[in-house]
Nucleic acid binder design. Structure first.
Lengths: 218, 218
DNA sequence: CGGAGTGATTTA
DNA sequence: TAAATCACTCCG
């Protein structure tokens, strides 16, 4: 009784066969095991075992052991993007694209340009505060890692080579207790403003509804 | 030789053991996995698996799977923030703070305002394209989830109540094959421009170095 | 076929 | 992104 189907495998050299066996019982019932057989009949049970045997003949990096087919563009290893591809290089210059970040209130009037403590200084030729602000805002946005700024003085001389792209384009800085107290006050004031705006909005809606009812009954 | 340290776990019933295993190879080398063993020797590899087994006996809501200790006040679930707290409300208005996002090249000249396909339309009273662009850019930035836009027409009537804050402030849209072809062309052109800029920069540096050498030898 | 050890995917 | 969960490989 021939229960075993050994099929040809086009992705391997002539004579190699592939076999799939379904598990019939146990915790893994229904799952399957895949085996390959060389032209001489030797059995291979895993991709590493196959690679050790064929590694000098073909590159199995794109070979999918389960399906028996080559999967272009789906390399299992080396998933890390090349350091110098266009996307990574573009990160070096993203700060340039974010000029003009501003704070404004709900009525769309520009309230004021955000001000940064003197301890924060930009790195490089573009020293405008708004570009620096964008840099830090996006850094906080992109990652939960600590923001330290550029710690290498070499970055100032040749940003294209020495820049640490996981940190914003600003010099390394320190934060004092005084800075923290000032910021806490600002957050408190901002929250109070928001609360007042929402209260006013709620009152306005209530007033509108009263007008409607009044109109219908008169 | 006992390489496996199975320690008692006081937070679980008597007889339960905890084990921590460091990964020794592969991409995740150095990370660790935590396992628990029931008094009968059954192995548990995750908190959901443990809960399914012990859920009727004890409440694991405060149980920290990694440390094996109860953490009062640190419920892992119900992390969803109350809809009307200051932070969530602030999200409703973040778009107002990002006016003026622009594209510019390395020489800092403003090249052009980015243009969006006609299929993308803003929701709400502020219909300027640059605010819409900021909304979509940040949405792509904040989350890897699909961006669909606001699908409820109710959001337009009363954004304060019906707005889906996980989607940008724009109407729902569809993308055609034509849109995709156009975008592929733009990406290609942008990559080519970057490549040319870098090539030019490299040539400029080479020229500078030649000048230096020349000066020293004359 | 089992299961320890990792990779891949999902969630927060 | 990082942690947690889930799925799979590979070899006994």
């Amino acid at each position: 009784m021939m229960e075993k189907k050994r099929t040809d495998c086009p992705a391997l050299p002539p004579g190699w066969k592939k076999e799939e066996v379904i598990r019939k019982s146990g915790l893994s019932a229904g799952k399957s095991d895949v085996y390959y057989y060389s032209p001489t009949g030797k059995k291979f049970r895993s991709k590493p075992q196959l690679s050790r045997y064929l590694g000098n003949k073909l590159d199995l990096a794109c070979f999918d052991f389960r399906t028996g087919k080559m999967m272009p563009g789906k390399m299992q290893k080396n998933k890390q993007r090349f350091r110098h591809d266009p996307l990574s290089l573009a990160k070096l210059f993203w700060e340039k694209r974010l000029k003009g970040l501003r704070s404004s209130d709900v009525t769309e009037q520009v309230l004021r340009t955000m001000e940064l403590p003197k301890a924060l200084q930009s790195v490089g030729p573009d020293s405008s505060d708004d570009t620096l602000l964008s840099a830090i805002a996006s850094a906080l946005h992109m990652s939960s890692a600590p923001i330290t700024g550029q710690t290498s003085s070499a970055a100032e001389k040749n940003p294209a080579i020495y820049l640490n792209t996981s940190q914003p384009l600003c010099k390394a800085f320190t934060i004092t207790d005084e800075h923290i107290r000032e910021q806490e006050l600002k957050v408190y004031q901002a929250r109070k403003s928001l609360e007042e705006a929402l209260t006013a909005d709620g009152l306005a809606r209530a007033a509108e509804n009263s007008q409607e009812l009044l109109g219908k009954t008169t």
